[in-house]
Simulated scan of single mutants.
Amino acid sequence: MRNRHSSRAGTIVIYTILTLFSVACLLPVLLTLIVSFSAEESIMKNGYSLFPEKWSLDGYRTIFVNSAIIFKGYLVSITVTVVGTLLALIITALAAYPLSNPNVRYRNFLALYFFITMLFQGGIVPWYLMNVQLGLKDNLLALIVPMLMFNAFNMFLVKNFMESLPGALRESAYIDGANDLRIAFQIYMPLSMPVLATVSLFYALSYWNDWFNAIMLVDNKNLYPLQYILFQLRSNIQMLEMLPTGANSGYTMPAESAKMATVIMTIGPIVFLYPYLQRYFVKGLVVGSVKG
């Protein structure tokens, strides 16, 4: 009986800690959402508050003053994120598979070659010239291809996971007449879905939050991604705030509420994406515990 009560008390303590931790994580998001609907006068007077004196949609009106550009930016960002993530994931997996195969010659040298890219980079000027020479200018490929040269850290994550899979799988497939390409796509990649889901989230975040490629390689306004459009909008609001008093006819620019509104608009798709990928994270923990 005592063990039952102690177990129940321990469960209550664990759930209490998890609940408090969840509230602490959700509180900044909730505050950001409320501030985005707060009047600028209320923010200037009382700062960020969960209970503003006055509500307003001025922040969102400022962003959607030209809704066609915003929706077009959403379409560009979604297209670039989906296509870029899929291609980067395939390239990463195809690079990790041979490095996880102990039968591949010079695989340690190749791994060192990839590792060096984590320490040294060529610089912005060679990067820009190379992209221009490849024709990556004023097109969607300019927003996709420069980031397809996969992150070596992600590649090593996939490589280490594939190395943990039983080598007998590969040997059995060889005996049955399968080649390496078929083994990679039909055996190793499906079994590596937990780590691939994790890496795909990393790539999706990078593509979704990227605005640097748009600044450097895109001049066509129809190809601006959402992040770059919102970046320009925020810069314009800050510039208007610096105008002399009375230059804007007494109108208070919703700088803070618009800033929080841009945060809500940009994190929305990622918030919806994460719960779908979370089940693969849980599966990865289960697989790891069974192998242990």
Rank of each mutant, 00 (worst) to 15 (best):
N3Q: 14
N3M: 11
N3P: 05
S6N: 10
Y15P: 02
T16I: 07
L20Y: 07
F21C: 06
F21Q: 03
F21R: 00
S22M: 13
V23M: 09
A24S: 13
L26Q: 00
L26M: 11
L30K: 06
L30Y: 11
T32I: 15
S36D: 04
F37D: 03
F37V: 15
S38H: 11
S38M: 07
P52D: 06
E53R: 12
K54Y: 03
K54I: 07
K54M: 09
W55C: 08
S56Y: 13
L57A: 15
Y60C: 01
R61S: 13
I63G: 04
V65S: 15
A68L: 11
F71A: 09
G73D: 12
G73I: 14
Y74S: 06
L75N: 08
S77E: 11
S77K: 12
T79C: 12
V80Y: 14
V82K: 00
V83L: 14
V83M: 13
T85M: 03
L86Q: 04
L89R: 13
I91M: 14
A93S: 15
A95L: 15
S100L: 01
R105E: 07
Y106N: 07
R107D: 02
F109P: 00
L110H: 03
L110I: 15
F114I: 07
F115L: 15
T117Q: 05
M118T: 09
Q121P: 04
P126G: 05
L129G: 01
N131W: 14
Q133Y: 12
L134T: 02
G135T: 01
K137V: 13
D138G: 13
N139D: 09
L141D: 03
A142V: 08
A142T: 12
I144G: 05
V145H: 08
M147C: 02
M147T: 13
L148G: 13
F150P: 04
N154E: 10
M155R: 06
F156Q: 07
Y174G: 08
D176H: 10
D180L: 10
D180E: 14
D180G: 01
L181C: 05
R182L: 07
A184W: 04
A184P: 02
P190C: 05
S192Q: 04
M193F: 07
P194T: 03
A197S: 12
T198A: 09
S200W: 00
L205V: 13
W208M: 08
D210T: 07
W211R: 05
A214N: 10
I215D: 08
I215S: 09
V218S: 10
D219A: 11
N220Y: 06
N220G: 06
L226A: 12
I229G: 01
I229F: 02
L230S: 06
F231R: 11
Q232S: 09
R234A: 08
S235H: 05
N236R: 12
I237V: 13
Q238R: 10
E241K: 09
P244I: 05
N248Y: 12
N248M: 15
S249G: 08
G250Y: 09
T252I: 14
E256W: 14
A261F: 04
T262K: 04
M265P: 00
T266H: 02
G268W: 08
G268L: 15
V271A: 09
L273W: 03
Y276I: 14
Y280I: 01
F281G: 00
V287S: 02
V287E: 11
